[in-house]
């Protein structure tokens, strides 16, 4: 187990460095000159050179990358003399736009994106799994058909369409909910939830539909296994058979999906956040794009990749807990 964990952690680090390298190359090689942008229109060559040197852009690309990676682990000092800036431990550089440390920017926004992702995840797991399991247990019945038709239709709705419908139906017409405005969980849990309810719903509809489809097929397969027959033959209550024997084994493929989806959403749901005006990482990223703020773009991409990779690792470890047949 320890050996397995160690190997996996090494692999995680390797994947992250590789993703950083690819992202770094793509965004720094592509034609754009942040130094010129920072310097403005009436810019002397000397001044431009000075800014380049300050940003470290005059050094060869591999040096810039090496600096960037060491900065993440040890922090680094950028520039020299009176303009020197110290960037502390998890250093992802400074935003070109507002000279804030990228790490601080990300951590400021993370609670919003995490609230959105986790809340939606709870909702879509509850909706998706119950629909999927219900359909699987009544396979080929009217309930099954209705649920699956609903799931296919819901899975075909783009998130911005669902969002607009929810805004139009529940805010504009019925006036049931306020227009979402992020309230930190620590300040007022009730308002936190009521303000996030719509974005949660909008995200959850799409994922719930996919999970319903997946869990239905997975449950149908599991419920046909011989050990389910054995459990039934022992006279166990139906509930125990379905939940403890069936659902537990049928969860493995769902868990894989869940790790990827949640990991991908934790670092910001770009579309949902921009529709509902939530100040999360997705919005930060979207803003950084229009200003060409490369350190922020790189930072968000890396954070997102880190979430995905770590979520996948967590899922692999959870397999052993969920499915007694898996051992490391």
């Amino acid at each position: 187990m320890t050996l397995y964990l160690g190997r996996r952690l090494l692999a995680v680090a390797g994947v992250l460095v590789a993703i950083a390298a690819v992202t770094f190359t793509v965004f720094y090689v592509l034609p754009s000159d942040p130094a010129a942008a920072a310097c403005g229109k009436s810019c002397s060559t000397d001044r431009l050179e000075a800014i380049r040197a300050h940003m470290g852009l005059d050094r060869p690309l591999w040096r810039q990358f090496a600096d960037f990676v060491t900065g993440i682990f040890t922090g680094r000092t950028m520039g020299s003399g009176q303009y020197a800036l110290h960037c502390a431990f998890p250093c992802l550089g400074y935003s070109y736009e507002n000279s804030e440390a990228v790490w601080d920017l990300l951590m400021d926004r993370l609670p919003v994106s995490a609230s959105l992702a986790l809340g939606a995840a709870v909702l879509w797991l509850a909706l998706g799994l119950s629909a999927g399991v219900t359909a699987a247990l009544r396979k080929d019945s009217l309930t099954d058909r209705a649920l699956m038709v609903g799931a296919v239709a819901a899975a075909s709705l783009p998130v911005y369409f669902t969002s607009m419908m929810l805004i139009y139906g529940l805010i504009r017409t019925a006036g049931l909910l306020p227009y979402p405005q992020y309230v930190p969980l620590g300040d007022d849990p009730l308002h936190w939830a009521s303000n996030l309810l719509l974005p949660w719903l909008a995200l959850a509809v799409l994922y719930a539909a996919m999970y319903a489809r997946q869990s239905r097929s997975s449950m149908i397969e599991t419920m046909a296994e011989p050990y389910i027959r054995t459990a039934r033959a022992k006279g166990l209550p139906r509930r125990t058979v379905v939940v403890k024997h069936g659902l537990r084994a049928g969860m493995t493929p769902i868990l894989t999906l869940f790790g990827m989806d949640l990991g991908g959403l934790l670092a910001g749901a770009v579309i949902t956040e921009s529709i509902f005006g939530l100040p999360g990482i997705g919005r930060l990223f979207y803003g950084a794009l229009s200003t060409g703020d490369q350190p922020v773009i790189l930072g968000v991409t890396l954070l997102a990749a880190a979430f995905i990779v770590v979520a996948n690792l967590a899922v692999d470890l959870l397999y052993a807990v969920v499915d007694p047949r898996v051992r490391y």
Partner: peptide
């Protein structure tokens, strides 16, 4: 598959 594809 580990790339945050939409963001990228």
């Amino acid at each position: 598959m580990s790339f945050p594809s939409l963001i990228f």
